[in-house]
């Protein structure tokens, strides 16, 4: 039983390491700023999820029996979309990606609208 658990956690380690590597490789390989956002937010998050699952499974083989690593995983899964959202807002605000089509119902996208009335970014104020 313990041997099976050990092998399963070893495989989870390999899967997690593979996904983490793919996430960072995608960050380096892809050429468009918005495309780069996809690789780390998905592959990176699942990679860490698998590593943490491996850690939990391994703790059952050594008799520590800890499940609290799952909190780190839950926290990462909740915060990863928010970080990605903020990074894409930065791209939209600074115009470093393709201009999106205008929204069909309202006037503007929120980020563009904010940029007009919010305080200027320091580097914009200087130029």
């Amino acid at each position: 039983m313990i041997a099976i658990l050990e092998i399963v956690s070893a495989i989870a380690l390999l899967v997690g390491a593979l996904f983490t590597l793919v996430g960072s490789y995608g960050l380096l390989k892809l050429d468009d700023p918005m495309k780069r956002l996809h690789a780390p937010t998905k592959a990176g998050t699942l990679g860490i999820g698998a590593l943490i699952m491996a850690s939990i499974l391994h703790s059952f083989t050594t008799g520590i029996d800890s499940v609290h690593e799952i909190l780190v995983m839950a926290f990462l899964f909740v915060t990863a979309p928010i970080s990605a959202h903020f990074v894409s807002k930065v791209h939209l605000h600074r115009g470093t990606c393709e201009t999106p089509p205008p929204p069909p119902e309202d006037k503007v996208w929120a980020t563009r609208g904010q940029a007009d009335d919010g305080p200027l970014a320091p580097d914009q104020a200087q130029s």
């Binding site: 997690g16 983490t20 590597l21 996430g23 960072s24 490789y25 960050l27 380096l28 700023p33 780069r36 956002l37 780390p40 990176g44 998050t45 990679g47 860490i48 590593l51 780190v72 990462l76 970080s83 903020f86 990074v87 894409s88 930065v90 791209h91 600074r94 470093t96």
Partner: peptide, 28 residues
């Protein structure tokens, strides 16, 4: 790899993303 993107990253958004990825990898 993420650090290479942090040094290269043509604009600010890429650098923020690279830092975020580095934090996630550090947790790993």
């Amino acid at each position: 790899l993420a650090m290479v993107r942090l040094v290269k990253g043509p604009n600010t958004g890429d650098r923020i993303l690279a830092l975020d990825t580095m934090v996630i990898n550090a947790i790993g």
